[in-house]
Design a protein around this nucleic acid. Structure first.
Length: 422
RNA sequence: GCGGCCAUGGUGUAAUGGUAACACUAGGGUUUGUGGAUCCCUCAAUCCGAGUUCAAUUCUCGGUGGCCGCCCCA
């Protein structure tokens, strides 16, 4: 028989327990922060009708960069490449039932069909944070504050990252003042988008190449664009009141295309070796149009797990693996299995997570397993324990043993764990 | 979608146009109620397919996969 390959499908991800532990750590921090701001979790199916994405952009993204197929009933379906259209669909559907302002979040995986590369795989997990129904700058302030607090709760220092803000409207009015055709406008926004990746002469050359004679006017007017718009300066001022100071205006920040209608922001890694955008978002007031619904103002951002992971890794901020299991019970002889199981169940009722070793191997081997699994405590159960009801609770980190009877074990473990955490 | 580099046990590395080696890991023992030590033993690999050749893991081509750029970026 041919052996089946152990490779996973190209570009998707396996999470071994130690990987999942890290991912969970990151998501738990995100969750704590957004829930502190009153956001409610929602979810949707990973499969959506393909039209949902066509309607939004209608671009080649849908044709070439999604997992789309026809189901057995001849319906076109797509594995979600992002969460926002599903979110917009859900909100449009139940608009009248919902109490605005609405604060929703989700942490889900998404799929895109493209060549995997650094930090971009075919499967990625993402936190989505969105607020609907707030037209004013309060939405911007809150979302950016949340982004900042997530970074801080992941133990990032203020010097480790930087927030950059722009107003798409000011870019648009700048481009309109140059009287460019749509194609040129589009190309200029592309050049803006990658400005921080290229040198200044490269930037200037690309502008000249695109605009030809018009380049002169462009550079003359460029100063106008570089003046911080009132809306942006007000936003920055408000955020500084919240002690968020690692923030600045970036007149070239674009973040994608037509999708955004106002303020956009991004969080940058300040590492000079890796000075790239980690995540961001912006205002999108028109997204419900496609459902024939009236506008609802919206502001949101998305944050992927891979960039967060790589950031934490580069700053040495990844947590050390600790299993959820508190205690490993080693059975000295098979005849004490029943007694051990009862002990395990009693302890579980006291909220101690207990795993029992049913290998019936030598006791030393069982202790080794507990150690390898990084479980903090072990107890060996045999004749003495059954007779006396006294146990030696062994702390694997240093081998110290603590005597306890059955009733005392839970609290002993809890106390020792608290000490360890400090 | 385009280009560059790469592909050997579970992991990390050797080597060779002719017997694929080492370390770690895993399993077993050294030790019959307490781990991280020592020593011994065992399991386990040349990505897939075709071509050149007496002989290919090695050379050539194709595929697949990985890494890195470009395009794109939700």
């Amino acid at each position: 028989m041919d052996k089946l390959s152990t490779e996973s499908y190209k570009g998707v991800r396996d999470f071994y327990p130690e990987d999942k532990f890290i991912q969970k750590y990151i998501f738990d921090k995100m969750r704590q922060v957004v829930e502190a701001f009153g956001y409610e979790e929602y979810d949707a199916s990973i499969l959506e009708p393909t039209d949902l994405y066509r309607a939004k952009t209608g671009e080649e993204i849908i044709n070439e960069q999604t997992y789309s197929f026809t189901d057995r009933g001849d319906r076109d379906v797509t594995l979600r490449p992002e969460m926002t259209p599903s979110l917009a669909r859900m909100i449009a559907k139940q608009k009248r039932e919902l109490a605005f302002p609405l604060r929703w979040y989700s942490i889900v995986n998404n799929f895109r069909y493209e060549r995997p590369q650094k930090g971009r795989l075919r499967e990625f997990w993402q936190l989505n944070v969105d607020m609907f129904g707030v037209e004013g700058i309060e939405a911007e302030i809150e979302a950016i504050t949340i982004a900042y607090k997530i970074m801080r709760s992941l133990k990032a220092q203020e010097t480790d990252f930087e927030l950059r803000v722009n107003d798409r409207n000011s870019v648009n009015s700048f481009l309109n003042s140059l009287n460019l055709d749509e194609d040129k406008k589009y190309k200029i926004t592309k050049i803006f988008d990658k400005k921080n990746k290229i040198t200044k002469p490269e930037f200037e050359d690309q502008i000249k190449e695109t605009l030809g004679d018009g380049a002169k006017e462009f550079f003359n007017k460029l100063k106008e664009l570089e003046v911080c718009p009132e809306k942006v300066s007000k936003l920055i001022e408000e955020l500084k009141k919240n002690n968020i100071v690692n923030i600045k205006f970036d007149p070239f920040l674009m973040r994608g295309l037509d999708y955004y209608t106002g303020i956009v922001f991004e969080v940058f890694d300040t590492d000079p070796e890796n000075n790239r955008s980690m995540f961001g978002g912006g205002r999108y007031d028109n997204l419900l149009d496609i459902f024939g619904e009236e506008k609802i103002p919206a502001f949101g951002f998305g944050m992927g797990d891979v960039t967060a992971f790589e950031f934490l890794k580069s700053r040495n901020l990844l947590p050390e693996y600790k299993p959820e299991t508190d205690l490993y019970l080693c059975i000295i002889d098979e005849k004490f299995k029943g007694f051990t199981d009862e002990l395990a169940q009693t302890l579980r009722d006291e909220k101690i997570n207990v795993a029992v070793d049913y290998s019936y191997k030598k006791i030393g081997d069982q202790i080794k397993k507990a150690n390898k699994k990084k479980i903090p405590f072990a107890i060996c159960v045999g004749e003495n324990e059954e007779r006396k009801g006294e146990f030696m609770l062994k702390r694997l980190s240093d081998g110290r043993e603590f005597e306890a009877n059955e009733a005392e074990i839970p609290n002993t473990i809890k106390l020792l764990k608290i000490k360890c955490a400090k």
